[in-house]
Nucleic acid binder design. Structure first.
Ligand SMILES: [Zn+2]
Ligand SMILES: [Zn+2]
Ligand SMILES: [Zn+2]
Ligand SMILES: [Zn+2]
Lengths: 132, 132
DNA sequence: TTACACAATGTTATATTATAACAATTAACA
DNA sequence: TGTTAATTGTTATAATATAACATTGTGTAA
């Protein structure tokens, strides 16, 4: 079987919603908001989320247990993610910095581990919250 | 009041256990293992964990919801953490690489955010699991 | 076309992780 | 000593995530 190129019904419903809200959102919040589309149980959401993360359409913000759509068309594999998170307003942005990416991709630890993935989360204050 | 320099009873019990096991461990696993010391409820564990994270004695591995003792005497503030995680055996190590630290500390994103903290998790296969 | 394999779905129940709320106690300090 | 903040104890509950199993859909190949 060829690799799936179209999303299934539930996957599409969940992705549509995540792309619409355009900010990190939690699984149960997704559930509440797609119930009118026929998705009834947490598992249906989590399964869709798993798949969408796997194919890089969305990312999980680990420190927040939240999911956000990928806006970075070139990270379709979800293997190298960098986010900035405002600790005041919780605004999250995906950072796309080729120099940083290259640096991290090539990073070698002393124990000789073979890395195939990383996730970096920066925390601080966004511009708006800095001036408050 | 001066900044606390000694740990409270529950904080010390939890820290002792985390340092003893010397690998990432989950909150409820800690709970089960310190019940003989008189800690009875999840909240007692979580409160101790919060404090220990805050003062940098332990770190949270966000992608695993687990906690590990800090072995890196110079990151007493828990504001700049880097881990390698083996996706096969789940071994976790704290990476201390001054060049990487400096690079990340000085990283500036395009939106002008002021960062005061970061957490980086690398995923891959450790040496042992690579040869399997 | 039929049979197969696999992906996706539906559903119920349950496991795991974490916090709310409130009362009581202890420790630091002016 | 009186005041404040930190810590503890306790019960209940919220929030996040998965197990298990039956069913349906979909692409592939005999
Ligand atoms: Zn992305
Ligand atoms: Zn902000
Ligand atoms: Zn550390
Ligand atoms: Zn390993």
């Amino acid at each position: 079987m060829l690799k799936q190129e179209t999303l299934s019904k539930n996957q599409q419903i969940v992705l549509d919603y995540i792309e619409k809200v355009n900010e990190p959102i939690k699984a149960y919040s997704i559930l509440h908001n797609v119930q009118k589309k026929g998705i009834k149980a947490p598992l249906q959401v989590y399964r869709a989320l798993d798949k969408l993360v796997e194919i890089g359409k969305i990312h999980k913000i680990e420190s927040r247990n939240a999911f956000v759509a990928c806006k970075n068309s070139n990270c379709q594999i979800s293997k190298a993610t960098v986010f900035s998170i405002c600790e005041s307003c919780e605004e999250v942005s995906e950072i796309s910095d080729s120099k940083l990416s290259k640096y991290l991709k090539n990073f070698q630890d002393k124990a000789g581990m073979k890395f195939n993935k990383y996730n970096l989360e920066f925390f601080g204050l966004c511009k708006k919250c800095s001036v408050k």
